[in-house]
Nucleic acid binder design. Structure first.
Length: 338
DNA sequence: AAACAGTGCAACCGCTCTGAC
DNA sequence: TGTCAGAGCGGTTGCACTGTT
């Protein structure tokens, strides 16, 4: 059973490639182009398996390969894409110019996966492991009674999420933090599911609540063009079980696309109503929601550490850990919030 | 300083899948 | 329909480097 090997392995070299071998392979491919890997080694004068040549080319010698450390943006993209695609490394690599599937896979296994685990996030499901979450400290706080909260099923969805939203927005989360915040939102929904509560996916909508956004802020988010474009884009109140009456959503009636808060370089559209409020949807982009400047009606401290693309491994670790530590100030009245 | 353990990464292996013929 | 080459994937190996004892 099984197919014959791609080439006769006897006498073929294995292990690290030498500079001479690289030059031979490069020169041959420059003349004839990549492909026909079975005959390539012989024609190029290489004592290598065709597959080895192909891997050497695709993973190292290709001119568009980007070497060096992954930037934070790349890392963030990998996590985001992995949450959607799983271990489809080539598909992920196709969206990261200059990076190979093997490189991404290695980086995932040696860095990202470990970091997610350390920070209580399941690297497979991308949902925080609630048993490890510091959110438990919040739930166990003297001002927070989970059982009381769970009895208020009509309020729990939008308001718990509003609380999380407030915490996040007041933390001035930047792009890096927002991605992990997205995972936390999933965890909250997971908690609701565990208690047989309706899963509320109204996070983007909650962020647009008129309770949270001043008129000025709203006009800042939604350009006049968006609103007045021949009445093709309208403001509409969607019927959603999680939404209080004053929650509003803006979407285009022309192409049935949801228009949400846009940051300077990202916007979120969705092709149908169902996806509009589903943060786990492939089309959902938490960045576009959370990266928008927002007023913070309840100043709450956060220990989230801002990290830029040149941050160190320790920095990333710090912000990952701190992201799960919502610090509730003494002055914060949970009863008032509820 | 030496031995050892841990880590990161390039490369490989064995297998499956896909598309062309 | 079967065969084959190429592509892709998960897992593993080997080695260099670094940190710890």
């Amino acid at each position: 059973m099984g197919r014959s090997p791609c080439c006769d392995k006897d006498g073929l070299k294995k292990g690290p490639w030498t500079q001479e071998e690289d030059i031979k392979l490069l020169e041959y491919i420059q003349l004839h182009g990549p492909g026909n890997w079975r005959t390539l080694p012989k024609n190029a004068g290489l004592q290598r398996c065709g597959k080895s040549c192909r891997l050497r080319w695709t993973n190292y010698l290709r001119p568009d390969i980007k070497r060096g450390r992954f930037s934070f943006e790349e890392e963030e993209s990998i996590i985001q894409l992995h949450s959607v695609m799983g271990n489809k490394w080539s598909a992920i690599a196709a969206r990261l110019p200059g990076r190979t599937d093997n490189e991404i896979k290695n980086y995932w296994n040696t860095h990202i996966r470990k970091r997610l685990i350390r920070n209580g996030i399941d690297p497979v499901t991308h949902t925080p492991r609630l048993d490890l979450l510091d959110l438990s400290s919040l739930l166990n706080s003297t001002q927070f009674n989970l059982s009381n909260l769970l009895n208020l099923q009509t309020l729990v969805n939008p308001d718990v999420l509003r609380l999380a939203t407030l915490l996040a927005s007041s933390s001035n989360l930047e792009n890096h933090d927002q991605f992990f915040f997205n995972d936390q939102m999933n965890a909250i929904n997971q908690t609701l599911n565990q208690h047989n509560l309706p899963n509320c996916n109204s996070i983007p909508t909650s962020l647009q609540s008129t309770q949270l956004l001043s008129q000025d802020t709203q006009s800042q988010y939604f350009s006049p063009n968006l609103v007045n474009m021949n009445n093709q884009i309208i403001e509409e109140k969607l019927m959603h079980p999680c939404l209080p009456d004053n929650h509003q959503v803006i979407f285009s009636s022309q192409n049935d696309q949801f228009k949400t808060l846009t940051s300077e370089n990202s916007s979120f559209t969705s092709s149908n109503i169902e996806n509009k409020f589903n943060p786990t949807s492939q089309n959902f982009n938490m960045d576009s929601v959370l990266s928008t400047p927002m007023s913070s009606p309840t100043p709450i401290n956060s220990s989230a550490t801002l990290v830029n693309s040149s941050s160190t491994e320790d920095d990333r670790e710090t912000y990952c850990s701190n992201l799960f530590k919502f610090e509730i100030p003494e002055s914060f009245e949970f009863d008032d919030f509820m």
